[in-house]
Design a binder for these strands. Structure first.
Lengths: 238, 238
DNA sequence: GCAGGACGCGCACGCCGTACGCTAGGATGA
DNA sequence: TCATCCTAGCGTACGGCGTGCGCGTCCTGC
C-alpha cells in the first residue's frame, strides 16, 4: 500500500466509481474509435490509446469487442450509417447523389480507403447492406434486370471507391506531415517535377496544374469520370 | 567464448563468409519482399522475417532501405514493372488490355490493393510514371485533349483499382483462412444468407449466385463495368 | 442474505520497427 | 608493408503493440 493513499484524508471520502451504467459500451467504443481514426489515422489507433481516451484500460475493451479487427469492421459500418438514401425519382440523379455522398464520406474519414483496401467492398455490415439494397432497387426500377443492376452498381461503386482512395491517401499524407496542403505541395513540387522530366505529357500536365486548386481539380475529375460511367450505363437502357 | 566453437575442429576450417559481393542488395531485398508478400500477405511481412529469409538480421536491411515504408514503396513499383505497354493501334483495345493486365497484377499480388489504399494511385515510382505517360499518350492520340485525357485515364484506373480491390480482399481472406475458395464460401454462406434476409433484391442475387463460379462471375462483372466506362469515354469523342 | 454473472484491471507474453555502437574484412594510400 | 578508413552486417535494447488470463468488485435476481 503506497503512501500516496494518505493524501486522501479517508478512504470513505474517495468517490466510488458509479457503475450504475457501464463505463464502456460497444457503441461508445466504436464512436470513440471513429473519432480517434479521424483525428490520427489508421496506424495511430491502438487499443491502449483508445482505451485511455475512454478512461479505461486497453484490455477492458475486449469485453465488448472480440478483436481490433472486429472493432475496425464496426467502425466501418458506423461510418456507412452517415450515407443518405436519397430517392429523387430519377435513377441518374439518385446515383449521382449517392456517389457524391460516398466520396464525401471517404474524404471525411480518409482511413476508410485504407480499410476498404483490405476489407473489400462486400462484407456484411447492416448499413452497407441497406445501401446496396437501395441502389440496387433504384437501378432495377430504371430498367436494368436484376443481374445487370448488380453489375452496374458494382461498377459505379468501384469507380467511386477507386478515385476517392487516391484522394484520401493524399489527405492522409497531408495530415501526417503536419503541413498545410499548400505547403506540402510546394515542398514536394521539385521532386515531382524532377521525376516527370523525361515524360513530356506528364510534365505538361504538371505545368498546367502548377498553383492550381488541388481540391477543385479533384472534384472536377471526380465529376467527369462519374458522368462518363453513368453515360456508359445509360446507353444500355436505350 | 562458448563451448560450441569446439564442435568445429579448427577455426581455420570454418568457411569464411565471402564478402566479394555483398549478401544484401536493395534489389535482392525488394525481390524477396515481394515474394514474402505474395506468400503471406501484408501483415505477415516483418523486417525480422524478411531478414531471416535472406540469411541476415533484421537491422542489416536498414543499410539498403531507409524504412519499412520505403521498402513497401519499392515493392509496389517493382510489381508495376510487370505491366505491359501494349500498343495495338486502337485506343480502346489498348486501354482494355492495360486494364486487364492491371487487374491480373493486383489479383496476383493481393497486398497491392491494401497498399494502394494508403499510398494512393499517384506517387512517383518510375514504373508507374512510365505507365501513366504511355496511357496518356494513347488517349491523346485517340483525340482527347491532354487535360481530358488525364481525366479519362484517371477514371479508368480508378475503376480498375476499385473493383480489383474488392476481389483482392476476398482472395486475401481466402488465403488467411487456409481453406479453399469453395470451402470458405460454403462456410460463410449461412451467415450471408441470414444477413441478407431482410433485403429482397440482395437475397435474390445471392440465390442466383449460389453454387456459381465466383471467379467467373467476378471476371464478367469486371468486363461489364470496363466496357461501360469505355463506352462513356468513347461517346465524348463523337 | 447469497449465488452468480458482468465488468474493468493488471500482468505477462511474444511480437514489432528501428536507433545505436561494435567488429571484421576489403580498399586505399604512404 | 602497414596504417587508415569505409562498408556491411550483427547484437542489444527501447518503447510500443495485440491480446490471453486470472483477479477483485459491484449489480442483479432469488
Amino acid at each position: 500500500m503506497p503512501a500516496d493513499d494518505k493524501q486522501i484524508p479517508s478512504v470513505w471520502a474517495r468517490p466510488r466509481p458509479d457503475r450504475r451504467q457501464p463505463l464502456l459500451t460497444r457503441e461508445s467504443i466504436v464512436a470513440e474509435a471513429v473519432r480517434l481514426l479521424d483525428e490520427e489515422g489508421l496506424d495511430n489507433l491502438s487499443m491502449r490509446r483508445l482505451g485511455s481516451r475512454l478512461g479505461a484500460g486497453a484490455t477492458s475493451l475486449y469485453r465488448h469487442v472480440a478483436s481490433k479487427d472486429e472493432l475496425l469492421e464496426l467502425a466501418l459500418d458506423a461510418v456507412y450509417e452517415e450515407l443518405p438514401l436519397p430517392d429523387t425519382g430519377d435513377w441518374r440523379t439518385t446515383v449521382t447523389e449517392v456517389a457524391r455522398a460516398m466520396r464525401a464520406t471517404i474524404l471525411r474519414h480518409p482511413w476508410l480507403a485504407a480499410k476498404l483496401g483490405d476489407a473489400g467492398l462486400a462484407y456484411l455490415g447492416p448499413n452497407m447492406l441497406r445501401q446496396s439494397e437501395f441502389v440496387l432497387g433504384v437501378m432495377e426500377d430504371a430498367g436494368f434486370p436484376l443481374a445487370e443492376a448488380d453489375q452496374a452498381v458494382t461498377t459505379v461503386m468501384a469507380y467511386v471507391v477507386g478515385i476517392s482512395t487516391g484522394e484520401a491517401a493524399w489527405l492522409s499524407t497531408v495530415a501526417r506531415s503536419g503541413l498545410s496542403e499548400q505547403e506540402l505541395t510546394e515542398k514536394l513540387w521539385p521532386a515531382a517535377e524532377q521525376a516527370v522530366q523525361d515524360y513530356p505529357r506528364l510534365r505538361a500536365r504538371y505545368a498546367q496544374q502548377r498553383d492550381g486548386d488541388t481540391s477543385g481539380v479533384n472534384q472536377d475529375t471526380f465529376e467527369y469520370g462519374l458522368q462518363r460511367v453513368l453515360d456508359g450505363l445509360q446507353a444500355r437502357l436505350a
